[in-house]
Design a protein around this nucleic acid. Sequence first.
DNA 1: TTATGTTATGAATATATATTCATATGTTGA
DNA 2: TCAACATATGAATATATATTCATAACATAA
Lengths: 116, 116
Amino acid sequence: MKEVCEREDEHEARVKAAIESMPSEDKIAEMGARFKVISEPSRLKILLALSGGELCVEHIAKAVSGQQSAVSHQLKTLKDNKIIKGRRDGKNVLYSVSDWHVLTMINVAKEHLNCE
Amino acid sequence: MKEVCEREDEHEARVKAAIESMPSEDKIAEMGARFKVISEPSRLKILLALSGGELCVEHIAKAVSGQQSAVSHQLKTLKDNKIIKGRRDGKNVLYSVSDWHVLTMINVAKEHLNCE
DNA sequence: TTATGTTATGAATATATATTCATATGTTGA
DNA sequence: TCAACATATGAATATATATTCATAACATAA
């Protein structure tokens, strides 16, 4: 086995541990997909808006100053990735955050920003 | 003011609150950038590998089964976004996660996945 | 059923960015 | 200074996806 750096033993053990505990490609892809969905500013704004409670599409659009069509596309993406859920209420569909994990992550990210 | 849906008062109050507490465009862009950087599977793998401690570039490449050049590009992106930091150690550069917030987010995401 | 209001979606365009290859830069020891 | 190794980077290509416009689908009330 070729020596890679000055700290071969220490690093080699970590590489081994990393490989063994590395989630499957599928799991990683799914985790990444969640982060990616949250990462887009337009969707992040929607989530921040929804953190106060459920809203209908037009009200979401008002809250984020976006167009109906764009917001609807974004809502679909968020829903497909199980970040939010929707329920019909008469003519409207009311959306809300589906999981506290999402809000936790967003709050940790906010905190991260403030720590600098 | 035009009525938007059946729950006008409730929603209107939330829209107002959302707009008032909405972070600046810059802050949102920065938060989004962080999530985006973490979202790419190749970079997520690197972070998972680094969660066990610092590693040099070639060992990172081994841990994630990636090529040196690609890994180096990814490391630069992670570093530019303050997700990781590097320190020189002789011929090598050792990288490590720069902030517990990052690991917290990743762990919350893992948990989120397992809850389904 | 029709008119109206609300939300969703298909297609096109524009933009962003991950990866690769080739090569440059930087570090150490002889 | 030179040789060998480790890491970084520029440019090109390929791919992904956000937004817009136009329109479809759905729900309600009359």
